[in-house]
Computed example of a mutant assay.
Amino acid sequence: MPETRARLLAEAEVLLRTRGYAAFSYADLADRIAIRKASIHHHFPTKEALLAALVDEYLARFVAKLAEIAHAHDDVRDRLRAYAHLFLDGIEHGLLPLCGALAAERAALPDSMRPVVARFFRLHLDWLIEQLDAGIAAGTIDARVDANDTAHLLLGALEGGSFVAWALDEPATMLRAFDAAMQSLTPQRTAPASRRPSPRRSS
């Protein structure tokens, strides 16, 4: 049934973002939604198939969310802030970022999923670069900013901030590095050079 499949994916995502891929089993999943393991195998014959379906659906939701953010905010800095709050919302609900959770267990993932994890991070970076380039063109981001380097900086601040906040159990600290990075993007306004008075000519 479609609703059973949806529940399995939702609960598997929670387990993945809290325990990790290697640390949960179909028995854990069966306990969470009170069904038999055989029923899970009916929908997802292997754990690899479950993970592939989970990531595909998550990526579809994520892409839709990025489009929604771009549509809702004209200012690039507001878009970046809304993007950062996607990470904050997860931490406030006790969930690590899915991409970070997967990357942390890269060695334990099926070989087929490793390129998917790389593509997941590339999706983040490409979107950030697009926003930064737009901000530079609009004059809301400092023109001296390198969009590629800064995209890595912002994503690293959010992924790393998520793990630090998770370890400390202090969600409010999650955006500290991101906020500091954002301050560095503000265009630097140089004061106009003062005009020296022309020397008076003697009559």
Results as ranks from 00 to 15, higher is better:
residue 6 A to P: 00
residue 95 L to F: 05
residue 77 R to S: 03
residue 66 L to M: 09
residue 41 H to N: 14
residue 107 A to H: 10
residue 184 S to T: 15
residue 100 G to F: 06
residue 174 M to F: 03
residue 143 A to K: 12
residue 131 Q to N: 07
residue 70 A to S: 12
residue 94 G to K: 06
residue 95 L to P: 05
residue 142 D to K: 13
residue 135 G to H: 08
residue 6 A to I: 13
residue 67 A to Q: 06
residue 96 L to M: 03
residue 3 E to W: 11
residue 100 G to T: 07
residue 2 P to V: 09
residue 92 E to H: 10
residue 66 L to F: 06
residue 157 A to H: 11
residue 140 T to S: 15
residue 36 R to H: 13
residue 24 F to D: 03
residue 125 L to H: 07
residue 65 K to H: 08
residue 92 E to F: 09
residue 148 N to Q: 11
residue 125 L to G: 02
residue 75 D to Y: 03
residue 45 P to K: 06
residue 113 M to Q: 06
residue 81 R to Q: 15
residue 191 A to L: 09
residue 139 G to C: 09
residue 73 H to N: 09
residue 126 D to S: 07
residue 54 L to P: 01
residue 128 L to N: 00
residue 3 E to Q: 12
residue 31 D to T: 15
residue 193 A to T: 13
residue 72 A to T: 11
residue 169 D to A: 08
residue 128 L to C: 01
residue 125 L to A: 08
residue 53 A to D: 02
residue 199 P to M: 08
residue 17 R to L: 02
residue 49 A to C: 09
residue 142 D to H: 14
residue 5 R to W: 02
residue 125 L to Q: 07
residue 169 D to S: 11
residue 139 G to I: 07
residue 57 E to Y: 00
residue 49 A to I: 10
residue 192 P to S: 08
residue 156 G to A: 01
residue 44 F to H: 04
residue 42 H to N: 01
residue 197 P to K: 11
residue 10 A to V: 12
residue 67 A to H: 04
residue 65 K to C: 07
residue 8 L to A: 06
residue 1 M to I: 05
